[in-house]
Design a protein around this nucleic acid. Structure first.
Length: 428
RNA sequence: GCGGCCAUAGCUCAACUGGUUAGAGCGCUGGACUGUGACUCCAGAGGUUACCGGUUCGAUCCCGGUUGGCCGCCCCA
């Protein structure tokens, strides 16, 4: 016996049907992905697939050196040539890198992409948070208009709707821009410093490192201080205020419901103006209640050496979405139309051939390649939830006729062996 | 990165204060029913009690470490 090798901590296997354990079955994942692809195509978004590994500098410069993501959660390693590479911790930076690298700006004025794939962060795991997790996201590059922010939020809302997720609320905020955010931050630091003693230990530290984060603290005493703190929305400069107002108005035009939440700060440095999160109230997620989030990043392209173009995007956590949909997961796996059972050894080839032909004709056909007793094959037919069973033996071969037995009960349907597909379809 | 809880069959769980062959239900396989699934009945397979070490005459149980999982903090998807 050789030693068992286990999967890497925090990286999950997705199995079909009911084999999976804690994770939602792979059919649930396929359903979410299929739904998203179809919906995003309706919005005119094309798919982009970038490598899972990038130059480490890309994330340091975009996400921000001082963020937790880059500071302590990145899978960074050297390749054989000594280059520092990192497994991507998020999807926006690679998409923007590709956009710049392929000079897309010179080829079209407005670019809208979506991506689906694994991201990696070295973190302590818990429900809904893994070291390899999957995100589905979209980026719109080239429009500074509020309509673009709202189109993306509408796209998420429609996706959640299509998936049947109701208890998700859109939380909206604006972080201002280079003109107004520094003014606000200064006022905020003044206020927090004045109440320093009332803040929790963590927030006293945050006061130095990232004062905006205090807004997000769940500690009751800190919240009391935050209640009285200056409100970023009061400090927005005129252009930012106008933009935020436009976003709200256009959300209203589309009938998209939202709440203003000045605590939506986000963990990446590149955000400007609009930020938003989709928060689910669902016991399956525990405290991992944010299923998605995003915002505008008008300065990122230029800072990465690209054209000075505005952009906005979002990312959704597929792991969390599928967790919410796990209960009904089974229904996404279509059962076989017919199970072909072999009654005697001499009919094995003929049955095998029939199964093959029906599959070519478009039917979902189960056939037990191990053979075995008719009884065991019928049990298998039951287990696979096949709609019909068709037994093929000497009698059927000689007469060219058989019977489609409805596994759910009812009278068998006589059928000519060369008309099985038509008959099964007609029985729908 | 910090704090707490946990680990027995594929799954959900038992096993009297440490006591000898670690059990049950579900699931799986076969049979009763030799060309027809489910229900019922019978039988079978499946465990180094996560791993390593310690205490003990004796450890699933007590202790330490490791690994993995869960909860909270942090942060996020």
């Amino acid at each position: 016996m050789s030693q068992k090798i286990a999967g890497v901590k925090g990286m999950n296997d997705l199995l079909p049907g009911e084999l999976g354990g804690e994770m939602a079955p792979v059919e649930t994942w396929q359903h979410v992905e299929r739904t998203a692809r179809e919906l995003f195509a309706r919005f005119g978004y094309g798919e982009i697939r970038t490598p899972m590994v990038e130059d480490t500098a890309l994330f340091v410069r975009s996400v921000g050196e001082e963020t937790d993501i880059v500071g302590k959660e990145m899978y960074t390693f050297e390749d054989k040539a000594g280059r520092s590479l990192s497994l991507r911790p998020e999807g926006t930076a690679p998409a923007v890198r590709a956009y710049i690298e392929h000079s897309v700006a010179n080829q079209e004025p407005l670019t809208r992409w979506y991506y689906i794939g694994p991201m990696f962060r070295y973190e302590r795991m818990k429900t809904g948070r893994y070291r390899q997790f999957f995100q589905i996201g979209a980026e719109a590059i080239g429009s500074r208009e509020a309509a673009q922010d709202v189109e993306l939020m509408d796209m998420v809302v429609q996706l959640l709707e299509a998936l049947g997720l109701k208890e998700v609320s859109l939380n909206l905020n604006s972080l201002g821009d280079d003109a107004c955010r520094p003014v606000f931050q200064q006022k905020l630091v003044e206020h927090l410093t004045a109440h320093r003693a009332e803040l929790c230990e963590d927030c006293q530290r945050r006061l130095e490192s990232n004062p905006m984060r205090v807004l997000d603290c769940k500690n009751a005493k800190c919240q009391a201080v935050v209640q009285a703190a200056p409100d970023i929305l009061q400090f927005l400069c005129e252009p930012c205020k106008a933009h935020f107002g436009d976003v709200r108005r256009k959300l209203d035009v589309l009938g998209v419901r939202y709440v203003i939440n000045p605590r939506i700060v986000r963990g990446l440095d590149y955000y400007t103006r609009t930020t938003f999160e989709f928060i689910a109230a669902h016991p399956a997620l525990g405290t991992a209640s944010t299923v998605g989030g995003g915002g505008r990043y008008d300065k990122l392209l230029k800072s990465l050496g690209g054209p000075d173009l505005p952009a906005v995007g979002f990312g959704l956590g597929l792991d969390r979405l599928t967790l919410l949909l796990k209960e009904g997961g089974q229904k996404y796996a279509p059962p076989p139309d017919v199970f072909i059972a072999v009654a005697d050894e001499g009919s094995a080839d003929e049955a095998f051939k029939l199964a093959s032909r029906l599959r070519r004709e478009g039917l979902r056909v189960e056939f037990d390649t191990r053979g075995g007793s008719l009884k065991s094959q019928m049990k298998r037919a039951d287990k696979t939830r096949a709609r019909f069973a068709l037994v093929l033996g000497q009698t059927e071969r000689e007469s060219g006729k058989g019977q489609l037995k409805p596994m759910a009960g009812g009278e068998p349907i006589p059928v000519a062996l060369n008309e099985v597909a038509q008959t099964v379809r007609a029985a729908h």
